[in-house]
Write a protein that binds this DNA or RNA. Structure first.
Lengths: 224, 224
DNA sequence: TTAAATAAATAGTAATACTATCATAAAAAA
DNA sequence: TTTTTTATGATAGTATTACTATTTATTTAA
């Protein structure tokens, strides 16, 4: 059985659907590689255009601007993670196990290249860690949110919140706790790599210390 | 008694110390107003120059670029918060009260204009909420960190971590928990304003729900 | 086969992020 | 007091960014 999963994205994110053409897919594929390499600030449409042998105007036909492209790939990531989450906890009854699996899922950097498609998920993980927050930390969050651009991220958090409530239906702050866990899974990883004094973890890839920290925090909080 | 507190900033953050001249102070003062108004992306040196009747080149004599200026004001904020924190918990013995005060201090938006100086702290609070993370979410974090640019932020978190350890010297993750609280104090506030489904708080300014959420989380976590 | 739609190539513009030069005024040192 | 330093101001210039518009070529449909 060979299947490739196709994620339907909010069509306000693009001018022409990049999944519908070879050029579109290449724009997404190489944007991920280039943003990962040089960072979002230094990334320009001219630079990817050169990388994939098209013109700047060619890229503009697919995306309004580079910020929209960032939202596109970040939100693709959250859709993909929600899919993984639902898949992983399928058929599991025990909410404790569900929650533990969910925490591990987001706090463990994607190591192996599971990608059957053109998108490199492990680069994407690192992009979300470094650039993810920039997608909504803007003066136009409200409009972007009204256009439902952040739905995948919010859905992922909502999914997480539901598991928390399954474990303890009386817990008062399931949504805030979810967004805290999800944010921290990424930023604690970032800190341990770049600003280690803000964490208690050596930058080791082996043991899932961040997951332990979050697990401990979550269960203490929702038990009491 | 009238005193104005002067915070000594890392001199790698500027080319000419903005505290040492009228023009320098005006650059900082109006940059805060302008970044708050139009957002960091749209903010340019030409625009503040116009605002304060100097030239673009005039601003460049004080700051290398707008990113350095952002770090300057964000880190000024953290120095200021550390000062407030130390002041507030001075002479208090009980670590529980200390911790509660600390949580309230960062999770409560600065309402009144305490500023005796040219810096508007309540605008600064909002800038840190929206733009703060951008100061270190870059490809050059490591160099910036080696230059000690983020020392005030790290010091603030360390101060927080010490209080946590006073309460429970055996808790395993005091630094990660500190950075979690500090980050969340700002981002939960941002979410409640702009992406409310990621929180459990209505956007009300009266009751300190975010503080309650964080307090509950912290004490549950470090008690067990 | 011809017209209509789609995509690519080229060119152009305003704004951004700087750097450099020169003149002048004020402050500090000789 | 005169000289020198230093700070600011004014002007100009450049490469890059973030686009838009127009023209040309190619594919698809009637």
């Amino acid at each position: 059985m060979e299947l490739s999963l196709k994620i339907k994205m909010n069509d306000k994110l693009f001018l022409r659907d990049p999944e519908e053409s070879e050029l579109g897919r290449k724009i997404v594929e190489f944007s991920i590689i280039l943003i990962h390499k040089i960072g979002f600030e230094a990334f320009t449409f001219k630079k990817i255009a050169k990388e994939i042998n098209t013109t700047e105007a060619g890229v503009y036909r697919y995306f309004e601007n580079k910020h929209r492209l960032l939202i596109y790939i970040v939100e693709w990531y959250w859709s993909w993670q929600e899919y993984r989450l639902i898949f992983q906890i399928n058929n599991i009854k025990d909410p404790e196990i569900k929650l533990k699996k969910a925490i591990h899922l987001i706090s463990t950097p994607i190591e192996d290249d599971i990608s059957t498609n053109h998108i490199n998920e492990n680069l994407l993980y690192e992009i979300v860690m470094l650039e993810g927050a920039k997608s909504f930390l803007t003066k136009h969050v409200t409009e972007d949110n009204e256009a439902k651009l952040f739905k995948p991220y919010k859905d992922f958090c909502a999914c997480f919140a539901r598991i928390i409530l399954e474990y303890n239906p009386k817990y008062k702050y399931p949504h805030s706790l979810s967004s805290t866990i999800v944010e921290m899974a990424h930023s604690q990883n970032f800190y341990s790599k770049h600003l280690p004094s803000l964490t208690d973890f050596a930058n080791s890839k082996e043991d899932p210390q961040i997951a332990s920290f979050l697990e401990d925090m979550v269960f203490s909080t929702i038990k009491s």
